[in-house]
């Protein structure tokens, strides 16, 4: 008797759980996973759209070899993208940590500044960014003539100078990408109990030590979260060179949808690789 009622209760609870996830799973399967699987089939074939429907002829790995070895545009877009990922993403993270440290101070007008620095969220996802960039508003104009800039450009070896100059050139774009990330870091920093700071200051910790020993370990899971978010954000942006290339290929008669699908899957694995790198840097939890 007792066993039966226990079982009943348990399965009822499980059903409640299923009820909670069901809408998401259903939507996800129909509108995301199924289309994804379909693109796998497309990527191995030539796809033609006819009046009576889609015709698919199996082509083996031809699309993939085309993307990797034959297509000149993909080859050009890839290094551009990699530069963007390896310079841009870390800079966005650093900037957003710095901004959230500043905003975590008990300043007067703090809520105004917080609102201001969250503002890029509505800008970066809108259509204006492209206009701004073509106008040159996204880079600091006349920067090239500054003595510091010229000094870095001329007298420091290229492999050090390149990232520094990249930051100078893209400073404003980096700032515009920090909206969500700053917010996430800020809400993580707010969770740190004030008494921890006090205790460590009594023990003689400097604010530099506070930052490295208390703030960074606390926000570490969020660094990982933000690094994934930024990688995805940058990679999926409509201004991304590879996205532009894939979109063009879709409506190009010579390349077609099979080519675009293959390119998307190759791109997917590149993004996955960068995410794995950031996992090894920030994601592993200390036992």
């Amino acid at each position: 008797m007792n066993m039966v009622s226990k079982l009943k209760l348990r399965s009822r609870k499980q059903w409640l759980g299923v009820l909670f996830v069901f809408p998401w799973i259903a939507g996800f399967l129909i509108f995301t996973l199924y289309p994804l699987v379909t693109t796998i089939i497309y990527s191995f074939s030539t796809v033609r759209f006819k009046l009576e429907g889609v015709s698919i002829t199996y082509e083996n790995v031809k699309n993939f070899t085309d993307v990797l070895f034959k297509d000149p545009e993909f080859k050009l877009a890839l290094p551009k993208y990699l530069v963007q990922i390896f310079y841009f993403v870390p800079m966005v993270l650093v900037f957003s940590i710095l901004l959230s440290l500043l905003l975590n101070n008990n300043l007067k007008g703090r809520s105004f500044f917080r609102a201001l620095f969250f503002l890029p969220v509505i800008i970066i996802s809108g259509p204006v960014v492209e206009n701004l960039q073509t106008m040159g508003a996204a880079s600091l104009q006349g920067l090239g003539s500054f003595p510091v800039y010229r000094f870095i450009h001329e007298s420091i070896p290229d492999f050090i100078a390149a990232p520094v100059l990249y930051v100078f050139d893209n400073a404003i774009m980096i700032l515009w990408y920090t909206g969500v990330q700053t917010l996430i870091f800020l809400s993580a920093m707010q969770k740190i109990d004030r008494s921890i700071y006090e205790a460590s200051m009594v023990d003689g910790a400097s604010s530099w030590q506070l930052f490295w020993k208390i703030i960074i370990p606390t926000i570490k899971p969020f660094i990982f979260l933000n690094s994934i978010y930024t990688i995805v954000d940058v990679s999926m942006s409509t201004m991304n060179p590879i996205i532009i290339e894939i979109k063009n290929a879709m409506f190009n008669i010579k390349k077609g949808f099979g080519f675009a699908a293959a390119a998307s899957w190759i791109y997917f694995f590149i993004i996955l690789l960068t995410v794995l790198i950031s996992y090894f840097l920030f994601g592993r939890e200390r036992k």
């Binding site: 994934i228 699908a261 998307s264 996955l272």
Partner: peptide, 15 residues
């Protein structure tokens, strides 16, 4: 999480 990393434009036609 993996679905996050797939090009949204590429699933347009199956969708």
């Amino acid at each position: 999480t993996l679905a996050l990393m797939f090009v949204p434009a590429a699933v347009q036609i199956p969708r």
